[in-house]
């Protein structure tokens, strides 16, 4: 079992291959790995509650730790109370700490 840190910086409504990155997170988790999906920049946009898309909620339910960069949320006017269930706001320190702990880190 390995630890993975996937950093998603793009908005799935703008870039189609974001879905593949979500699939990667799901697949890695299904194979018994520890997986964190860290959303940053426009990557935080789908973290806002949206009745037509439950992708991030499903990832969280599957055991993927889904975090959203606090500053990116603030910049886009997304309040902590409006986040999808299972998604938590976090500081960039999380990324640095996981990298220092040796998590396999990918940026998209």
């Amino acid at each position: 079992m390995a630890n993975y840190l996937l950093i998603e910086s793009r908005d799935p409504f703008e870039v189609n291959d974001v879905a593949y990155f979500y699939d990667l997170a799901s697949g890695l988790k299904a194979r018994g790995n520890e997986v964190t999906l860290f959303l940053v920049q426009n990557g935080v946009l789908p973290a806002r509650k949206n009745p037509s898309d439950d992708t991030l909620a499903k990832l969280a339910t599957a055991g993927v730790q889904v975090l959203a960069d606090n500053l990116s949320l603030q910049e886009r006017g997304i309040q902590g109370s409006s986040l999808v269930n299972g998604v938590a706001a976090a500081e960039l320190d999380v990324v640095i700490e996981k990298m220092a702990d040796g998590a396999k880190t990918l940026w998209h």
Binding site: V40, Q41, L92, V95, I96
Partner: peptide, 13 residues
């Protein structure tokens, strides 16, 4: 924005 985020990460470290 990647430049800003990258420099934020480096600064955090």
């Amino acid at each position: 924005a990647r430049t800003t985020t990258a420099l934020r990460l480096i600064d955090t470290a």
